[in-house]
Design a protein around this nucleic acid. Sequence first.
RNA 1: GCGGCCAUAGCUCAGCUGGUUAGAGCACAAGAUUGUGGAUCUUGGGGUCGCGGGUUCGAACCCCGUUGGCCGCCCCA
Length: 437
Amino acid sequence: MATFQTLPGFREFYPDVLARRNHIFRLWRQTAHTFGFAEYDAPVLEPLELYKTKSGDEIEAQLFSFTDKGGREVALRPEMTPTVCRLVGDKAATLKRPIKWFSIAEFYRYERMQKGRGRCFFQFNADIFGEPGVEAETELIALLAQCLCSFGLTEHDFYIRLSDRNLWFYYLEALGLDEARVRGVLTAVDRYEKLGDDAFKAYAEQFGALSDELKGKILAFLQVKSLAALEATVAAVGGDKLAARLSDWRKLLGNLDAMGLSRFVEVDLGVVRGLAYYTGFVFEAFDRKGELRALAGGGRYDNLVGKLGYAELPAVGFAIGDMTFALLLEQRGLMPTLVQAPDVYAVIGGEKERLAAFADIHALRASGFRVDYPMKEIAFGKQFKAAAESGAKLALIYGGDELAKGVVKIRNLADRSELEVPKAQLHATVRDFLSHD
RNA sequence: GCGGCCAUAGCUCAGCUGGUUAGAGCACAAGAUUGUGGAUCUUGGGGUCGCGGGUUCGAACCCCGUUGGCCGCCCCA
């Protein structure tokens, strides 16, 4: 057999697998609509420069990029954020605020395969543009939680870690660090969970070792796990900026509490989300057991629209990836078994009966019922077996006897009861049965 | 980019220290069965043993390479 392999990291969706994907997308989409978000889509292929401008030249190593026949440097999209910034930036002057948008789209990254990570994947992306206050974060964190809860996940299955890059900035500034050193420390903070003390090695090489006192203050901040602890730590340092920022925290946590979402949200300054375009609150969702990679991540990026050449526009957004999410649902037994079953299955005697059946089959389909029948002439016994296996609720029997009498025999496949109805009443009878079921 | 493990039918696997024509279960299809069910029985289609090379009288098995997969590191927008 000649074989063409699927490219590494790419996925093929056979019907049963696609059914699961569709189920996830359907609930995400439905949830976003209940929050008043509007759906958009955009090109899969973009100018390479779009991603270099946002993330730097090194990003190219992780992209599916090439030169097209017109000599353009292009890349398959690895994320939605720059694209949606362009969409919004182009029309910012005419869009009603706040701009609440979402998309469900496929992305491509040239990376090594791992559990929960492939070279192609889908993300649900939601963003709010034009709202500088914590109302935007409130709305997005609530949407994120609901996107997971819609599937039956609870606070025992996942949680959202909330942090703040501004707060880190103000805190480290107050401790006397300049901007370059602050970035160095944030990189270390990001890695601290994995590497422990080694996370500070890179910083020490660049700027010299931190004093014990300074490091102690950084570690204390990193380990803050509640608003109370945060207030206490900040009070020890003082400063107007920090105090003002704390009131944002109180407001955001108060909003989330009022929505009943406190049980999902944990203050955790250990999250700073690696690369640099985030400018304020950042958050990540994880499974409670800690067995999987992040389910979702997001934060505020007030400078990005401006950086891409448009008028400055505040923004907050997050994304949920489909792979880790599907793993979690399967682990928790929350992935339903989805079968595409017909409503009715026709059992057909011979050629004459088949022609009689076709009229009914097509009419029922035209009214929206799902109808299937065997394409070949096969024994009745086999047809009943096929009818049962198809998952249909009803079998319609077209045999010589029924044809002669001008009736159709309807068999309830669940309780095996049968009744004969005149052909004229078939549609109404099927409709009644299926609507009561 | 780096490391560990793995690769036999559509799926799960067996295949003895290297020895005739590579097996089983499940799944699929046909028949028993020209009017009533997920059963049973019979039969069948399916494999260049991931690919290439080497060792050997002889390789699914041993050696080298390669491709792909799983897991981890780096990265994670």
